[in-house]
Write a protein that binds this DNA or RNA. Sequence first.
DNA 1: GACCTTTTAATGTCAGGACAATTGCTTGAC
DNA 2: GTCAAGCAATTGTCCTGACATTAAAAGGTC
Lengths: 246, 246
Amino acid sequence: MPGRPAITLDRSSPIPLYFQVAEQFEAAILSGAIAPGDRIDNEVDLARDLGLSRPTMRQAIQTLVDKGMLVRKRGVGTQVVHGKVRRSVELTSLYDDLARAGQEPRTEILHLRRSPADEETAQELRVAEGAEVWSLERLRFVGDEPLALMRNYLPIGLIDLAGADLEHHGLYATLRRSGILIRVARQRIGCRRATTAEATRLRERRGSPLLTMQRTAYDDAGQAVEFGRHAYRPELYSFDLTLVER
Amino acid sequence: MPGRPAITLDRSSPIPLYFQVAEQFEAAILSGAIAPGDRIDNEVDLARDLGLSRPTMRQAIQTLVDKGMLVRKRGVGTQVVHGKVRRSVELTSLYDDLARAGQEPRTEILHLRRSPADEETAQELRVAEGAEVWSLERLRFVGDEPLALMRNYLPIGLIDLAGADLEHHGLYATLRRSGILIRVARQRIGCRRATTAEATRLRERRGSPLLTMQRTAYDDAGQAVEFGRHAYRPELYSFDLTLVER
DNA sequence: GACCTTTTAATGTCAGGACAATTGCTTGAC
DNA sequence: GTCAAGCAATTGTCCTGACATTAAAAGGTC
């Protein structure tokens, strides 16, 4: 029946206070210290007891509401949502995802070269059709099984991929280390039959269903940074997402 | 070069001020009155000119940032994101989606009955295995083409589906009208071959790839109110989503 | 001209307060 | 006993103010 976890604040830390509070609430929820369905204490009391202002406390709770872990009801209170919280689709690469899950991913670079952009790629990256772009094709494994075939296109001049260690760090981590921060991405998830070439690479039969994802990512200047066409083996991969009504 | 659209505020309206501002900014962006890449005026000036406080103005901008339409950069400003804003995955039903797109959807109810919950359904809805739940199966058309086969399971007692007009209103609208508000939903998107029964219903060949979506929806009390297993024809449907880094 | 420092401008964080709106419960009348 | 009015609890909205942090631009020095 704890209406709140034990929370310690470090005011000298550069980590924002609302974030510290949110983190510790999240840990308490994930560990089960606060059970699903439990009501947490009201904002005013929490703020007073922690020595915070109410807006700061509200901001902490809001971040968890946005994550789908808490639900607020005016006149009632704030509750922990039922149902285990699956990881939602995030702005991270598959490599990061797998590494976090401890699955030991491995990447094989099939090719990395400069080539003219096809029509769709040019449109997504906002370059002229036929203009040169980086073209990267990779095959990702979990253990010995091929998992995904990934084709990425990046505008030239943004980054020099030739020297990047793409086998060990993932595309997004490579971009981050070059100071390129992805802020917005638009994805389209679909499904189609494997081509012969895809089937060979992924060790599937020709015509097997593949889960596909197209993504265009934009940096914090709103510029298109990456366009990708990926294909996943559906027995090994799916997209989990949490939707929250505002 | 407009740093802002013309904004009118109605302080007597029950619609929150921050929402009024966000709506009008959104309209200006969608209409192209503010072009992608344009920087909008800074928060302080906007707040002053509109006669609002800065937190309110910030809240307005934040809602659009959350939607992926704007990007903020500390020390720099706030910009309109490039790339047309596709509809993101929202907490609405397919019926709502299609109706909004003016596609004239049509729904055929294949069956609506009470039946014992299988293991997965029972777990998702948090009822005992074998307990009775509503079982609803529908086939959705766009024009003459079957688009999706939808199987939904709802706990009994929450709502009486027997009298609902599911052919014309969609499941979520029906729930809304009964005072049940969906606040959080978890989805898993995948892909597999069609079974014979599915292929017949969807006018596909047996073994054709189908896009699948599993969803569990929770109301504002955190209770599971719906579990669904849907299958879509991949030539006619895909999932678009916008991801935003927080 | 290249490089470092300072300035400036913008968003990020936080405080404290006030009132509104909604909900659920209690109390009272019938 | 039942129903409705009132009340208390809780989140929603909005205000004013302050300082911190970051990034780009401007300026000065070598």
